[in-house]
Design a protein around this nucleic acid. Structure first.
Lengths: 111, 111
DNA sequence: CGGTTAATTAGCTAGTCGGTAAACTACCAC
DNA sequence: GTGGTAGTTTACCGACTAGCTAATTAACCG
């Protein structure tokens, strides 16, 4: 994958397990085992996912006794959100809607 | 990569060349050669990128004489935007801002 | 028809991704 | 110390990705 920050963030989001982990962390910090519990994969696999999320800046990790709690860091999500937002006009005023509008106008002129 | 639609969309966005192609298409449809022109990669590489974008539903392609014009399809961007939007509260009311607020309150009580 | 332009497909290399099992580190409790 | 719990690292595997060159398809022009 590319090494620029936005590519790393989008790359991290391109996996349902990692998105589910972020969703879980929206309810508050959690340990690795708590995060792993809902998934049918081994702990090392989760550990890898967490490393990907950390590299993207989407989570941060503390140290508390033998636990390494993870917490959500949303700033990269803001940047991803802003990038997609630049295309808002294209899904709000789609060609389909333009077509429908033109048809309405034409139909009106026939009456 | 995972095969669910949102993962495919995020995966397609996880590349600066593909994001640049989408940015170019925001100015209107373009042929493959027009899209390839700004980049220091070969035409087959661009062709692959377009296939990735097409699989994600981010572009559609027509046939006009010997050209295969591409156009932007923004609906998947709306879905990506909505997914990130669910975390808006986390970047708008960050712990940093909460910290700053608490410090302001404490400082005020000292006076 | 032959020649040119547009674009894709095929085949290759190198690197990354998601997963595993097994070994290892770090901490706690007895 | 021993043992148990939490988590990471290493080594490996199969599948996929991104790039290239070379060959191929498709459509136009003369």
């Amino acid at each position: 994958m590319a090494t620029d920050q936005l590519s790393i963030v989008f790359g991290a989001l391109a996996d349902p397990t990692r998105r589910a982990i972020l969703a879980r962390l929206a309810d508050g910090p959690a340990t690795v085992n708590e995060l792993a519990e809902p998934f049918a994969v081994t702990l090392p696999a989760i550990s890898k996912h967490l490393k990907v999320l950390e590299r993207a800046g989407l989570i941060s990790r503390g140290r508390e006794k033998q636990w390494r709690p993870c917490r959500l860091e949303a700033e990269p999500l803001r940047e991803a959100n802003e990038w997609t937002n630049r295309y808002r006009q294209f899904w709000e005023s789609s060609f389909d809607k333009l077509d429908a509008h033109l048809r309405t106008i034409l139909k009106g002129s026939e009456q």
